[in-house]
Computed example of a mutant assay.
Amino acid sequence: MTPHETVSKARWTEAMRALVIEEKALTRQRDRVTEQRRALPWVKVDKDYVFQDANGPVTLAELFDGRSQLIVYHFMFGPDWDEGCTGCSLMADHVDGARQHFEHNDVSYVTVSRGPIDKLLAYRARMGWSFRWVSSAGSDFNADYHVSFPNGERGDGVFYNFETRPDPEIDELPGISVFYRAEDGTIYHSYSSYSRGGESFLTVYAYLDIVPKGRNEVRDGQMTDWLKRHDRYEDDGRTGSAAPAMAETA
């Protein structure tokens, strides 16, 4: 860690005042971006997507669970994977505590993956989560929202995060999509975020960003893979399948 100057409380307060000005500017910029996000135009959802949950087939409309707004997390868990992506698992660790609040504010939440429903539910039970998880296997949903790229279909690149990118050499990438259901039953796609856009939902990063070592991802000039699934921190090495960590492309 870079050595830090030790100063008087007065000089520290002066430095903090300068930082607070920057933090306030960032807060105001975030507020402006939030307003722009809510003002985005919408796209009508014309396809009748059908998923699989623990009780059988379920439609996109049914995932709203009687509410008008739906958050979908595109969780990286491919058909042949034995466990979910490490980074997506970190994201999932943040959901249930918040979910009990936003469900009372007309917002439902569901995680969607291409993996078979039995694997998804087994992994959810292992990790101790309780949010709804459905399988999009056999559906165009993941392809239509640009988060799944099966080998052989990637060609010279993929369309991800609203631009064409080189082949990521991986079938699944993360993202979040938001939908609105009108009183007449019409469903609209209002927003999607991919790649590092998901960091705003990771409270653990917010905490790490205020401590001296930060995220501690670079050590001796090299990126480190410190993150593990929460039930694997006691392991000396990786266990299970080699499911990749969440993509960190900018």
Rank of each mutant, 00 (worst) to 15 (best):
E5G: 04
T6Q: 10
V7E: 05
V7W: 07
K9L: 15
K9Y: 15
R11Q: 10
T13V: 05
E14I: 11
M16E: 12
L19K: 07
E22D: 13
K24F: 12
L26A: 10
R28W: 12
Q29I: 02
V33M: 13
Q36P: 06
R38C: 04
P41C: 00
W42V: 14
K44F: 07
V45F: 04
K47Q: 14
D48C: 09
V50F: 05
A54L: 08
A54V: 11
P57D: 01
F64G: 01
F64M: 11
F64H: 07
G66W: 12
I71L: 13
I71K: 01
Y73G: 04
Y73E: 06
F75N: 03
F77K: 01
G78E: 03
W81E: 10
W81C: 15
T86E: 07
T86P: 02
A92L: 06
R99I: 11
R99D: 11
R99T: 08
R99H: 13
F102I: 00
E103G: 01
N105C: 05
S108D: 00
T111V: 12
S113C: 13
L120F: 13
Y123D: 09
R124T: 05
F131G: 02
R132P: 09
S136G: 11
A137D: 12
A137I: 09
F141P: 04
N142Q: 11
D144Q: 03
S148D: 11
S148W: 08
F149P: 05
P150Q: 05
E153I: 07
R154S: 14
R154N: 14
D156T: 10
V158P: 04
Y160G: 04
N161F: 02
N161L: 04
T164N: 14
R165H: 07
P168F: 13
E169T: 06
I170N: 09
I170R: 04
I170P: 00
P174L: 01
G175K: 02
I176G: 02
V178A: 14
R181T: 07
G185A: 13
T186G: 12
H189G: 03
H189I: 05
Y191D: 15
S192Q: 09
S192Y: 08
E199M: 15
S200C: 00
T203L: 10
L208P: 02
I210W: 08
V211I: 15
R215G: 06
N216C: 12
V218A: 11
D220H: 13
M223Y: 10
H230W: 15
E234N: 10
G240I: 03
T249G: 15
T249P: 10
T249W: 15
